[in-house]
Design a protein around this nucleic acid. Structure first.
Length: 409
DNA sequence: CCTCCACAGGAAGCGCAGGAGT
DNA sequence: ACTCCTGCGCTTCCTGTGGAGG
């Protein structure tokens, strides 16, 4: 049995793990100089006590959108003549409705107030009072803005608020990784949010390589990471999505693997191993935090996909145009069975469709509208992760839930 | 051509939880 | 302690929608 001091004194390849965290904001963001300058220009009116124009930023995940905005906001509030500038960063995955967003803003600018349980009108008045009173130039960053359910209402509220304010103002910066969501917006809210638009392109392989090696130098002890390992990590990410966050995860995991095996260096092999491990970690995280019924739907899809795989095992040589698509209706039937098996009251078919949309948004499944050859209009569903893994994760989760239920009952 | 099927997704409304106002 | 109000998850009902089949 090791002691804590033994564990703490165990040699490690890491120098500073914080640097490798996706939340770390470096002093300089390579390859984003132009974008940062534009954001700074856009927000600079706040320092002259004017209202900055709203801004909408989009780009794929891990292209440095959030990082750049946080970087600029950080510089802004550090500025010596910041005057009445205030900022509020909101991740809309957690604050996904007009009510929650306004509640979060109010709590942020009025920390003394215990904002739980107020009605919307009350919160709104408190917020407005605070902005008016301080003549505040409030900058609200709405990250993953497409997650907000009543976004039109929210944007309307926030832009209308400016008309009511004779002192102070609200400026909205929306960040999204889905370009298409802009089309679903009400024309009025679209024009107000998109007063100023920016696109963050994905990093190229060489850019990723530079970013990773910069971070690796700060995060690991000298000469730990082999150059070829950095190149491999960059190549893996560039070929998949150009997601810099994924690249950082790979590095961290590689380091952990190296520590585990008491290795002094990180080579291609550790990166390869890390890749497999990161992929299952991501899936596990995404799936196990899902609400119960979404997990049940996912499990049903996984089981049907496995059944179908077995039946069509004879015709193995059809990787393209594989008919592993499932029909919405049959998945719902399977879901009802699964729900009964786990003694959960089943949700209605309408709500089940809503779950499908959520699962698709998370990239756990993909769906396509049925074309010809199909009867009627339905959705064809395909699972995004290996069905066996999904099944294992969900069933494990439910075994835990069930056993704790029994103890409770 | 029309009708039917098998769904998609909008609208309305319901019950509940939890805080405000009295 | 009570009533009122609000947000939220959900169901029920309903109106599209696009190909299959007669």
């Amino acid at each position: 049995m090791p002691t804590f001091s033994e564990i703490l004194n165990k040699p490690s390849v890491f120098l500073d793990r914080n640097v490798l965290s996706p939340h770390y904001i470096p002093e300089t963001l390579p390859f984003r100089e132009k974008e940062i300058e534009r954001i700074m220009n856009g927000l600079s009116p706040a320092l002259r006590n004017e209202r900055p124009r709203n801004m909408f930023i989009y780009g794929k995940t891990g292209t440095g959108k959030t990082c750049s905005v946080k970087h600029v906001i950080g510089k802004l509030v550090e500025h010596k003549d910041k005057g009445t500038v205030a900022s509020c960063y909101i991740n809309c995955r957690m604050y996904n409705s007009r009510y929650r967003v306004v509640q979060k803003i109010t709590k942020e600018i009025l920390p003394a107030l215990d904002s739980m349980g107020f009605g919307f009108a009350m919160l709104y008045e408190k917020m407005m009072g605070e902005i008016r009173g301080g003549g505040k130039r409030l900058i609200v960053v709405l990250d993953e803005v497409d997650m907000v359910k009543d976004l039109d209402d929210l944007l309307y509220t926030l832009t209308r608020a400016n008309d009511e304010l004779e002192r102070g103002s609200i400026c909205v910066i929306g960040i999204s990784n889905r370009l298409s969501f802009k089309e679903q917006l009400d024309p009025r809210s679209r024009s107000s949010l998109c007063e100023n638009e920016m696109v963050f392109p994905p990093y190229t392989a060489t850019q990723l390589q530079a970013i990773i090696s910069q971070r690796a130098k700060m995060g690991f002890k000298p000469h730990v990471v082999e150059d070829s390992a950095v190149n491999l990590a960059a190549a893996i990410c560039a070929s998949e999505t150009g997601d810099a966050r994924y690249a950082l995860k790979l590095l961290v995991k590689s380091g952990e693997i190296a520590d585990e095996h008491s290795l002094k260096r990180i080579t291609d092999k550790e990166v390869e191993d890390a890749r497999r491990s990161v992929d299952t970690d991501v899936a596990f995280e995404a799936i196990s935090t899902l609400p119960d019924h979404q997990q049940l739907v996912l499990l049903s899809i996984a089981e049907l996909a496995l059944d179908k795989g077995k039946n069509t095992r004879l015709t193995t040589g059809t990787p393209e145009e594989d008919d592993s698509f499932l029909i919405s209706g049959e998945v719902y039937e399977e879901y009802c069975k699964t729900a009964r098996k786990f003694r959960k009251p089943r949700r209605s078919a309408r709500w089940y469709r809503e779950y499908l949309n959520d699962l698709e948004m998370l990239g756990l499944i993909t769906t396509v509208e049925s074309g010809q050859g199909m009867r009627g209009r339905t959705r064809l569903i395909r699972i995004g992760y290996p069905a066996t893994d999904v099944k294992k994760i969900v069933e494990k989760n439910f075994l835990i839930i069930e056993s704790s239920d029994h103890r409770g009952a």
